[in-house]
């Protein structure tokens, strides 16, 4: 049995987007939309960081795109890392939260839906597996991407969803 709405539970290997909520001398505390806060250690980066000066690299409130590399047994708390070329601090701060249960609909078959939103709105969109979508682009195009994602969330059970999203973009042009 699976519920129609759900809470994100981290698994090893997930690509997630998180918000830094605390900077310590050796690690950052990151909120990845899970029941527990997550730690990003200063050793698990793709660049070298000076201990005690972590503020120089990633500040409080910044967003990171990272990989879950360890999940603790018992309480499902996770550690994340930035090791790997595709992981990094994200340059801007606009996110939309999506129910993790509706994520497959937002991504679509082989990324069909998310590519449609990307091309239709002209924005850069990254969807983390924890249900956070990050949007970057021109200020006048961002609302379009947000509207499209909200529409997917609202009409996720609709079989004609792709047409509806396409219509949304055509309507604006």
């Amino acid at each position: 049995m699976s519920p129609l709405t759900s809470v994100y539970e981290p698994h090893e290997g997930d690509d997630v987007i998180g918000k830094v909520i605390e900077v310590s001398s050796k690690y950052w505390v990151v909120d990845i939309n899970a029941p527990y806060y997550t730690r990003l250690d200063a050793r698990d980066l793709n660049f070298r960081a000076e201990i005690n000066e972590l503020d120089h690299y990633i500040k409080m409130g910044d967003l990171v795109y990272a990989r879950v590399f360890r999940v603790y047994t018992g309480n499902h708390a996770a550690d994340i890392s930035l090791r790997g070329t595709k992981y990094a601090k994200l340059p801007s701060n606009l996110i939309v939260k999506v129910d993790p249960m509706k994520l497959p609909r937002l991504i679509g078959k082989e990324g069909a839906m998310i590519n449609l939103i990307k091309t239709g709105s002209g924005c850069d969109v990254i969807v983390g597996q924890n249900g956070i979508a990050w949007i970057d682009g021109d200020d006048d195009k961002k609302p379009l991407a947000i509207n499209a994602i909200e529409l997917v969330q609202k009409e996720y059970y609709n079989p004609n969803l792709t047409d509806m999203v396409r219509e949304l973009f055509e309507h604006v042009q």
Binding site: P3, L4, T5, S6, V7, M101
Partner: peptide, 8 residues
């Protein structure tokens, strides 16, 4: 409300 939140 708990059921709506998706709690098992």
């Amino acid at each position: 409300a708990c059921a709506d939140a998706g709690l098992p």
